[in-house]
Structure formats: structure tokens, C-alpha cells
Nucleic acid binder design. Structure first.
Lengths: 207, 207
DNA sequence: TTATGTGAACTATTTCACAGCT
DNA sequence: AGCTGTGAAATAGTTCACATAA
């Protein structure tokens, strides 16, 4: 089944596997079976094997997968080069949480730039980055930043998306519930936690 | 096809429709066709009609859907009674963003309680709620709160989940990347934005 | 006319069972 | 003996075309 069409769901799971592998490596493990990895990531073993099988033979029969090698392969598939840079737009509570979050590191990411339109925030240093005026978004291309995180109020989300696209950004992680419109070649992933919360009661039996 | 098994994906889309309807209502519209709603929510019209058809005949042929009625029906399906209460655990940047977010309102939600283990935060009033000591989680049942949002560092996420389950919580929105383990009857929805960011480069052509 | 509701075809994804290496 | 890799079956979800009702 090698090199056939890859399910989107498989791509969605790869970063989860990567984190599981990072945890196992940290525990000093060198190799892992699909069964053991399954316990870490809550994905059934046959699903894990099938997912990997789309890309190649990464394991050794009777043994399992070499953690370092498998991690390298997944990173290659996902295009995760070390030192990948992302920009953040909107340094409110949510944006600050994103800036403070260290969980991007295992994916080789760094949030390298932050923008806001609030003069009180511009110039402030949060963690390792200084907050820049939102009008400076147009410098992203020359700084080699092609991914951005939108964490602004929904009224300004589309406008920010337009600036980002104009600045050459190719991928956007969008926290605003407003569906933003971008050219087809730009990939948008939206995280909308109000809708996620809203479907929780459906799965709760009585009340 | 009425009353047959409902796709999970349909349930996932219902809150999105609800927001679209709320926006249309705010613009003074009283009725809407699947085609017009499609423009608002970026879901194709036939998908919208099919989704509704699992639950009943909500529209009028040749006319469309009555916005007020359709909203009421969707809320009933999702079990969204007005005044639904949720608790927040972890009042860091992310938790504060959740507390400040007004987008829950159209779903009839209110974040009614907030907990943290930091003495500097306990007792502080953020928006309408006072931060309580995390040991008070056990009061949730008697306060009629059955849903919770976990926004704590991943090391403590499982422990918090255990307390919440012990306190009778039936649904959890989990922002920590650690897969938390709960009894089967408790529904967990995980939002893991690092993994979402990590698959963005896959969809970006060159680099 | 106009727009819904839906069976049927199609496509995507998961699950299983087991052959095949090490 | 143990664990991977994968075809084939089963399940889930999407898309279409059109009969049907206002």
C-alpha cells in the first residue's frame, strides 16, 4: 500500500506518535513495539502500524521500531525541520499562553515573533520575544517565517489573516471562531474551543 | 433515514451551524436556506440538509429554515439548556483567556467556578468568578456543575481529572496534551494545539 | 419556481486476521 | 516466538441527483 493516498487522519496522528516517542526516549527507551506505543498514545496498535505502512517499512519484525529512527522519519514526513519558525498575532491571555507554552519544542518549533496593536504591549518582552507593532507583519517573509498563529478577537481575525497572507505566510493556526477566508494555497487549521465545549453535553447521558 | 445512527461528524458541526444562525439572527434575518447558511459556515448545502435530516424535518420546502425554530431544535439535540454551568481548573494565561471569552454565551454556557492551587491567585476575582482553592473541587456536584475545563500544566492534568471525576463531573474539555484516563462514562474532548501546529508544515508545499 | 429531504453511489477510514521476517 | 506489514472486510462519512412539497 506504499505511497498511495495518505489519509488526513493519519497525518493528524503523526504528531501524537512523535510526542509519545519523545516521552519514551526521555525514559531511556531505544526501541518500542506498536503495542507499547499504543499504551502511550491511546491509538490501537494496528492503526499505528497501518499509519506507518503508508510511508515505508520503519520497523523490524519480531522487534519493533527504533525510536530515534522512527522519530526522524515522522519529522521528515511532516516537514518538521529543526528551527521551524512561527509568528504569533495577538498577545492577549491566549496569545501569552501560546508564547509561554514549551510543548512546541519537540516538534522543532519556536515562536519567533509576536505582534499586537496595543501600544501598551508593543516593545514589551515576553519570554524570548519582543512584541512588535502589528504593522510590522510585512517583515515576515524576509525573516523566513511562513507560519502564524492568530489569537486576536474575532472581529479583526480576517483582517489579520489578509496581512499574513500578503506577508507570504503559508500556514495559519486560527484560534478565532470566525471562519477566515484565504487563498487555496494557504492552509488554515482552526481551533474553536467554544464549539468543542458545546458538544460535550450531547455525550452526557441525563441532564 | 430518521433516527438512525448519527455520525459524530454531524454532532461536531451542529455547534457551528448554531453560531451561523446566531449571526444571521443578529442581522435581523428570520429564515435561511441551506445555501445561504452554507456561505456562513463553509459547509456544503447538501451536507447541512443531510445533517438536519437525521433528526427531523426542520425546514419548509421552497422556503428554507426558520432560524429561531432551527436554533431551538439544535440546542435540544445537543442538550444545551440555558444556564449550563462549567468549571475551570487552572487560572494561568490559558485559563484566563477561557474565563474572558464571551463566545460560550450563544451556547447557553457560563463558566461559573474557577480553581487554582496558587495561593496568590486564590480569592482573586476574575470577571464574575472568584478563584477557589483546588481542594474545593469536591463541591461541584452539589453546585450542579457537571462539565469542566482543564487548563493546568500537563504534569498535574491526570490528578485534576481524577478529582473532577470524583466530584461527579461528566464531561471534560482538556487542554493538556497528556492523554488523560477517566471512566468510560465520562466524555473527554482534548484540544492539543501543539499537534495542530505540528501538522501545518505537511500541507505547506516547498520548505 | 424554489429549496428541502433522502436513497443510493461513492469515497475515506478503521478493523481484522494472518502471512512474512528476524 | 514475537512483532511488523498489509490485503480484504467492515464501517463511517460525503456527495449527488432528484422526487417531493410549498
Amino acid at each position: 500500500m506504499r505511497y498511495s493516498k495518505i489519509p488526513n487522519e493519519t497525518i493528524r496522528r503523526l504528531p501524537i506518535y512523535l510526542r509519545g516517542l519523545a516521552m519514551l526516549a526521555q525514559q531511556g527507551e531505544r526501541s518500542v513495539s506498536s503495542g507499547k506505543l499504543a499504551d502511550f498514545v491511546s491509538v490501537p496498535p494496528f492503526q499505528i502500524r497501518k499509519d506507518f505502512s503508508y510511508f515505508g517499512d520503519f520497523g523490524t519484525r519480531g522487534v519493533g521500531y527504533d525510536i530515534a529512527n522512527l522519530s526522524r522519519q515522522i519529522k521528515k514526513i511532516l516537514n518538521l525541520e529543526p528551527g521551524h519558525k512561527a509568528a504569533l498575532v495577538g498577545v492577549g491571555n491566549l496569545g501569552s499562553a501560546v508564547l509561554a507554552y514549551s510543548g512546541f519544542r519537540i516538534y522543532g518549533f519556536e515562536v519567533e515573533a509576536a505582534f499586537d496593536n496595543d501600544p501598551a504591549k508593543i516593545g514589551k518582552k515576553i519570554g524570548r520575544v519582543s512584541v512588535e507593532d502589528i504593522s510590522k507583519i510585512n517583515t515576515l517573509a524576509r525573516r523566513g517565517i511562513m507560519m502564524a498563529i492568530i489569537a486576536v478577537p474575532e472581529q479583526t481575525a480576517q483582517q489579520v489573516a489578509d496581512s499574513l497572507v500578503a506577508a507570504g505566510v503559508k500556514g495559519i493556526l486560527n484560534f478565532s471562531p470566525k471562519r477566515i477566508t484565504v487563498p487555496k494555497k494557504v492552509k488554515v487549521i482552526t481551533i474553536d474551543f467554544a464549539t468543542d465545549l458545546a458538544r460535550l453535553p450531547y455525550y452526557i447521558p441525563s441532564s
